[in-house]
């Protein structure tokens, strides 16, 4: 039996963009997407795709990627397909606005998982690089009543169980759960693979399934808000940096040591 795997992925503003390009519209309390910098698949979600594909490398498996949002850059969101995922499902509706409220997002994703008749294994990135909420995956597990292992750095499916190396403060622990289960993964999983030319060609031909709120039988407006965003601002650093400059870099290094002693830092 093929292992039916789902990856939950989010489209985010590129976190590697220059800090100077980061802007907030204070009126609407929103981050303004930087012009000319395309969005990306959330980095930890690419780790999740990689975790799913690693399983698919060694046994029969299908990988479906689900994402929710108001507007998608299709070439960006097709990246998991070009890496080797089989299907892409986009939950797209103006009601699915990227909010700080994780409850609605988790409900949408859980509804889509149900509509797809469930999965043996759901793999998610530990958190998204925009709101850093780290709540949606755990919420999906709760809503679907699945066992849940967080912060994985290696994920294997063995004899109907998932085995995860889970990061702890001073190392890792090996945790097992019966399928179906949900696992979140972290960057320690390793670099996601690059899309192959063949993968890119295959992804070009694949059409994503697109579902609206109505398709999911959900009325987003009916979902009670759980979190209110009261303010959003860019913190101001008033740190003045004293640049230590000697005759050459080695001299600067020496002067730095003297300065640290002079100022009683050491």
């Amino acid at each position: 039996m093929a292992v039916k795997i789902c990856v939950l992925a989010k489209q985010v503003i590129d976190p590697e963009m220059p800090m100077a390009a980061f802007r907030i519209d204070e009126g609407s309390k929103k981050v303004v997407p930087p012009p000319n910098i395309p969005p990306v698949v959330n980095g930890f979600d690419e780790n999740a795709v990689e975790a799913a594909l690693k399983i698919k490398d060694s046994q029969e498996a299908t990988v479906t990627v689900i994402s929710t949002g108001t507007e998608f850059a299709l070439d960006v969101m097709k990246k998991p397909l070009s890496m080797g995922a089989d299907e892409l499902v986009l939950l797209q509706d103006d009601a699915f606005e990227n909010t700080i409220d994780s409850f609605l997002t988790a409900q949408l994703l859980a509804a889509a998982v149900r509509k797809l008749d469930g999965f043996d294994l759901i793999i998610c990135g530990r958190q998204a690089s925009d709101w850093d909420n780290a709540q949606v995956p755990l919420g999906v597990a709760e809503l679907l009543g699945m066992s849940c292992i967080s912060l994985g750095k290696r994920v294997d499916v063995i004899d109907g169980k998932v085995r995860v190396e889970r990061i702890i403060a001073d190392g890792y622990e090996v945790v097992e759960a019966a399928l179906p289960a949900l696992v979140t993964v972290s960057n320690e999983l390793g670099q996601p693979r690059y899309p192959t030319l063949r993968g890119i060609m295959a992804a070009t031909r694949k059409k994503p399934t697109i579902w609206s709120a109505a398709d999911l039988g959900l009325d987003a407006a009916q979902s009670a808000s759980r979190i209110t965003l009261r303010d959003l601002f860019v913190p101001v650093s008033d740190q003045e940096c004293e640049i230590i400059e000697g005759e050459d870099p080695a001299d600067s290094g020496r002067l730095l040591a003297l300065k640290l002693r002079e100022d009683k830092v050491i």
Binding site: F22, I24, V31, I100, W131, A224, S225, R226, I227, T228, L229, R230, D231, L232, F233, V234, P235
Partner: peptide
């Protein structure tokens, strides 16, 4: 950025 949030 810093968000100020409250729970409903």
């Amino acid at each position: 950025a810093i968000a100020v949030v409250s729970c409903d």
